[in-house]
């Protein structure tokens, strides 16, 4: 079955930081796998190293131990086929929406016109047609995060990492954007074949994920892995949803002590 094709494997990942010569362990031997077409979320208290973990996986930061395998290859540096959406969008204010998306494709040997048409399509895929020449300052928070999303998917990545992508947005905008992310992942003709998201919001994680990994406080380890087998669209008031929420909250509390 296609679901069992492995995309990402994180083996014994450890993180620590150094202050005044002594080492502080943040994350201790965390291992998990993400399969094709899966939406996996990592949830945990602040300071548990979940955001840093994403950066180790995509190779912009080094961990203190462990390995990352992506599509069967041990990674070193930023692997092709992996992309990331930032919590704070990180759009260059001096470039238009379209130019910000095009950043992902420049220097890859693709022709200028091809870059432009792909970037335009990516913006359309996140419902931003007509805003190509708008600067980030003139866009709303939700629109900016859509540009960030378009920039991440325009290079046709297999895997999308998301670092608290909805936390800087108001609830209504976040809700719409969650719908978009779900649609992009489940639509097999669109790029992105797996998502790994970091969040501290239990509801948002339950609404989107196939699997939720719960981390304890630092030095963090995996407390529990919860499979969410609910049909879409998920209703937050439904009995099953509430039950899973209670379970996740219980795990989070357990990890705090």
């Amino acid at each position: 079955m296609e679901e069992e094709k492995l995309m990402l494997e994180v083996k014994n990942l450890s993180l620590s930081y150094f202050k005044e010569g002594s080492e502080y362990k943040v994350m201790n031997n965390v291992s998990f796998k993400v399969y094709w077409w899966e939406y996996v979320s990592v949830i945990g208290p602040s300071g548990c190293g979940k955001s840093s973990m994403l950066r180790v996986i995509i190779g912009t930061q080094k961990g203190s131990g462990g390995q990352v395998f992506f599509n069967g290859q041990k990674t070193s540096g930023v692997p092709p086929g992996m992309s990331m959406v930032f919590q704070n969008m990180v759009l260059l204010p001096w470039k238009t929406a379209l130019e910000n998306v095009e950043l992902s494709l420049e220097d890859t040997g693709i022709s200028k016109s091809e870059i432009q048409s792909r970037a335009t399509t990516a913006l359309a895929n996140v419902n931003l047609q007509g805003f190509e020449d708008t600067y980030p300052a003139e866009l709303s928070g939700g629109m900016r995060q859509r540009v960030g999303m378009a920039r991440a998917i325009v290079s046709n990545p297999d895997m999308l990492l998301m670092d608290e992508p909805f936390s800087a947005l108001d609830e209504l905008t976040a809700e719409q954007l969650r719908g978009d992310v779900h649609r992009i992942l489940k639509n097999k003709s669109l790029p992105v074949n797996a998502v790994l998201m970091v969040s501290h919001n239990v509801d948002e994680v339950l609404e989107l994920s196939d699997r939720v990994i719960v981390l304890s406080k630092a030095p963090s380890k995996i407390v529990n892995t919860v499979t969410v087998d609910l049909p879409y669209p998920r209703k937050r008031q439904s009995k099953e949803f509430v039950k899973l929420r209670d379970l996740l909250l219980k795990d989070l509390y357990a990890g705090e002590v």
């Binding site: 950066r55 930023v78 992309s83 930032f86 704070n88 990180v90 950043l103 920039r151």
Partner: peptide
């Protein structure tokens, strides 16, 4: 913000692109 440097890394910017665009 350090995310801008991260962005350059994630998008695998070449050196000159870091200078020109960031």
């Amino acid at each position: 913000p350090k995310e801008f440097f991260e962005l350059g890394d994630v998008l695998r910017f070449k050196k000159w692109k870091f200078w020109r665009d960031i």
